[in-house]
Amino acid sequence: MSVDKITPDDSRISHCEANLNGQTYHYILGVPKHGNFEATVFLIHGWPDLSYGWRYQIPFLVKLNMRVVVPDMMGYGRTNAPCSPPADLRLYSIKRAADDIFELAKQLNAPQIILGGHDWGGFVVYRTAQWYPKLVTHVFSICTPYTAPSRHFISLVDMVNGPLPQFGYQMQLAGQELEAKIRSYDQVKSFLMALHGGKSAQGKPCFRPETGIDLDGLKTINPAPSLDGQELEYYTKEYMRHGLHGPLNWYRTRRINYEDDLKLERKQIIHPVLFISGKFDAVLTPEMSKGMENFVPNLRRREVEAGHWALTQVPAEVNKIVEDWLIEVVFKARCAL
Rank of each mutant, 00 (worst) to 15 (best):
Phe207Ile: 01
Tyr132Ile: 07
His152Ala: 15
Leu156Phe: 11
Asn161Glu: 09
Leu227Tyr: 03
Ala180Gly: 01
Ile182Leu: 03
Phe207Thr: 00
Ser226Ala: 09
Asp216Arg: 03
Glu231Asp: 14
Asn161Lys: 12
Pro205Ser: 07
Tyr132Gly: 02
Glu177Lys: 15
Ser200Ala: 10
Gln176Arg: 15
Asp158Cys: 08
Thr137Val: 00
Asp216Gln: 06
Gly197Leu: 08
Gly203Ala: 02
Gly122Phe: 04
Gly198Met: 10
Gln170Cys: 05
Pro225Phe: 05
Gly217Pro: 05
Tyr169Phe: 15
Pro163Tyr: 10
Leu173Glu: 11
Pro205Tyr: 08
Arg183Thr: 12
Asn249Asp: 10
Asp214Cys: 05
His245Leu: 03
Ala194Glu: 04
Asn222Tyr: 04
Asp186Gly: 08
Tyr146Asp: 05
Tyr146Gln: 04
Gln166Asn: 14
Gly162Arg: 08
Asn249His: 10
Tyr251Asn: 09
Ser141Arg: 09
Asp119Arg: 06
Gly246Thr: 14
Phe140Ser: 04
Val124Ile: 15
Glu179Cys: 04
Ile213Val: 14
Phe140Tyr: 13
Ser155Asp: 02
Pro145Thr: 14
Glu238Pro: 00
Asp186Tyr: 09
Thr128Ser: 07
Pro209Asp: 00
Thr236Ala: 02
Met193Gln: 14
Asn222Met: 12
Ile221Ser: 00
Ile182Ser: 04
Pro209Tyr: 05
Thr137Pro: 00
Leu232Arg: 02
Phe167Leu: 09
Lys237Trp: 09
Thr144Gly: 07
Gly162Ile: 02
Leu232His: 01
Val157Tyr: 13
Leu215Tyr: 06
Arg241Trp: 02
Met240Lys: 05
Ala194Ser: 10
Val188Tyr: 00
Gly162Thr: 04
Tyr169His: 07
Pro163Arg: 15
Ser184Val: 07
Lys134Pro: 01
Asp158Trp: 11
Phe207Arg: 00
Ser184Cys: 09
Gln202Asp: 15
Gly229Asp: 13
Ala201Pro: 09
Ala224Pro: 03
Ala148Tyr: 04
Asp186Gln: 14
Arg183Tyr: 02
Met171Tyr: 02
Gly246Ala: 12
Leu164Val: 14
Thr137Tyr: 00
Gly212Ser: 11
Arg241Gln: 14
His242Trp: 06
Lys181Tyr: 09
Val160Cys: 03
Gln230Arg: 13
Met171His: 11
Phe167Glu: 01
Asp186Pro: 09
Leu244Val: 12
Ser226Cys: 03
